[in-house]
Design a protein around this nucleic acid. Sequence first.
DNA 1: GTCGCACCTGCAACTCATTGCAATAAGGAC
DNA 2: GTCCTTATTGCAATGAGTTGCAGGTGCGAC
Lengths: 156, 156
Amino acid sequence: MTQLIEETLHERIREAGLRLTLPRRAICKVLAANGESFLTAAEILAGAIAEVGHIDSSTAYRALDDFAEIGLVHHVHLGNQPGKWHLTLDHDHQHLVCETCGKPTQVPSSDVTAFFDLLKDQFGFTVNAHHFAILGQCETCSAAATHPHHPTTPTS
Amino acid sequence: MTQLIEETLHERIREAGLRLTLPRRAICKVLAANGESFLTAAEILAGAIAEVGHIDSSTAYRALDDFAEIGLVHHVHLGNQPGKWHLTLDHDHQHLVCETCGKPTQVPSSDVTAFFDLLKDQFGFTVNAHHFAILGQCETCSAAATHPHHPTTPTS
DNA sequence: GTCGCACCTGCAACTCATTGCAATAAGGAC
DNA sequence: GTCCTTATTGCAATGAGTTGCAGGTGCGAC
């Protein structure tokens, strides 16, 4: 299963004209093994190093940037935390991230297109929906804030 | 004029129970002098240092964070550039930032409330509109991209 | 005016991320 | 299999931002 994802990633890297190097293979393996979860660069790097020995952090960042450029992964900033990366696969959605507990929520594209179309019509602005998450408070945390109580456990 | 803004800032800092220290006064002066423009922490720090002599960068960051917490300024991340700060005053809008040329566009709140209400209804999610900008391509840059031509000059 | 204490500041160290450059290796051509 | 070009890597230095802590200072109380 993750094996299959891994091979798909390899194919797409080759198709894009990028080279499939040892560090990149290791990063693919880590990404494939973690499905759609959000990983920090540090986690990806650690996983990759566990696979193939030392890899420089700059190498990992550059590889991930390259992967993002060809659409394999998304680089999202969930609030003021370190940036996170996750596999794109074929999904098409926008992220809502709670600034209190860090929980991400996925919003299907169909719910955001009307808004993005408005920005396009009114301002000529084409949104790149993926790079930054929409921040705020999730239901649980905003309820906790209005009814003072035990705060939900932050992830930070 | 900027004198007036400065005094308003001082008042609001006192009202919030924060102390009006020398570094904070200097930062207020810089912010007031720059109206609503987007300033990097480095610019603010340099301006403040020019006013009152050495200030540590951590002091500036902490002061700006405090100011943000009481609503005097907004801290926005315009793409992968260093974060920027700008005076809140009384405006209420969302930022669109072009990832190619860096130009920010302000969208009045009235244009975004429908979308934010949808997120609230469907997902119980309360958006914090200010912290992160919406990224994409402005009209000029997306036109330049589709009609291959001289790229517009990036600001990076 | 001066006292006191909580809030702030400056320092130093640290984290996360990016960049320039020389050396290395992927993978197409033969 | 070998060669060659050029993308990619690792290193070292740098930039942006944060944190812990010891000492300094604003400002309300007296």
